[in-house]
């Protein structure tokens, strides 16, 4: 089962309007991101994606059996990343709403949730700027069962997110998309390390080795399936 199947018209105007609203409201954070990645990269993901969209019609989807390559591949990867960021962003939103966290754990969930929202806006904007269709925001469901379990689940989700970005790095064709993906990848890694520490796990959980392990797209989609409400 691919995430593309879930991209059916949840068509949901409210969701769409909400996303638009966030997009507008978060415009400043997108600008900050562009500024931050510096002159060269600032032309960045967006300009290049715009330039690249001349007259090609491939549809960017997530989780096809045969991964597309080239430009279509980059958009498929961006959509895959967007889907993961939607999940993470929703997760933290629900966690904060649950009222089950307090103190530093709550502060961390709020801060990380804000990062994920910024990732969503950036990826969605990049996909739209390229004239492609962003995946619909999935409806999510997470087992929230007290602070300890929530932090463990958060650690699991963030470690998976970091591995997922790493798994896509070599498949990305555009240098600018790669810059953006790497810049998100290391933030997911920071989240994962902090949550590992909060749950008495190693910040670098690779059996003592200094090399992170990538996860492939199909495996990631399979792992997050329980969090997608059908």
């Amino acid at each position: 089962m691919s995430a593309a199947d879930r991209d059916e018209p949840t068509g949901d105007d409210a969701v769409r309007a909400g996303a638009m609203h966030r997009l507008l409201r978060d415009d400043s954070s997108r600008k900050r991101f562009l500024k931050m990645t510096g002159g060269t990269a600032a032309a960045g993901a967006f300009a290049v994606l715009l330039a690249a969209c001349a007259g090609e019609e491939e549809e960017a989807t997530v989780g096809k059996d045969v991964p597309p390559t080239g430009r279509a591949g980059d958009f498929a990867i961006l959509n895959f990343a967007l889907m993961l960021e939607y999940l993470e962003s929703d997760f933290y939103e629900k966690v904060v709403e649950s009222g089950m966290l307090s103190g530093p754990a709550l502060d961390m969930a709020k801060a990380f949730g804000e990062h994920e929202r910024e990732h969503v806006v950036t990826l969605k904007t990049a996909i739209e700027a390229g004239g492609e269709k962003p995946v619909a925001r999935p409806r999510t469901t997470f087992p929230l069962d007290g602070q300890r379990e929530i932090l463990r689940l958060a650690a699991q989700v963030e470690n998976l997110g970091a591995a997922a970005y790493l798994g896509q790095a070599t498949a990305i064709q555009s240098e600018d998309v790669l810059v953006t993906a790497l810049s998100i990848h290391t933030v997911e890694a920071r989240h994962a390390a902090a949550l590992n520490i909060a749950t008495d796990q190693e910040p670098v959980p690779f059996g003592g080795a200094g090399l992170a392990r990538p996860a492939m797209m199909a495996a990631v989609l399979e792992t997050v399936k329980p969090f997608i409400a059908s």
Partner: peptide
């Protein structure tokens, strides 16, 4: 590139822990 990616993720984790 994959090697560099596997390394930088660990750097980010180390940075977060030290922070």
């Amino acid at each position: 590139l994959l090697g560099a990616g596997r390394i930088v993720q660990v750097e980010a984790r180390q940075a977060a822990a030290l922070r």
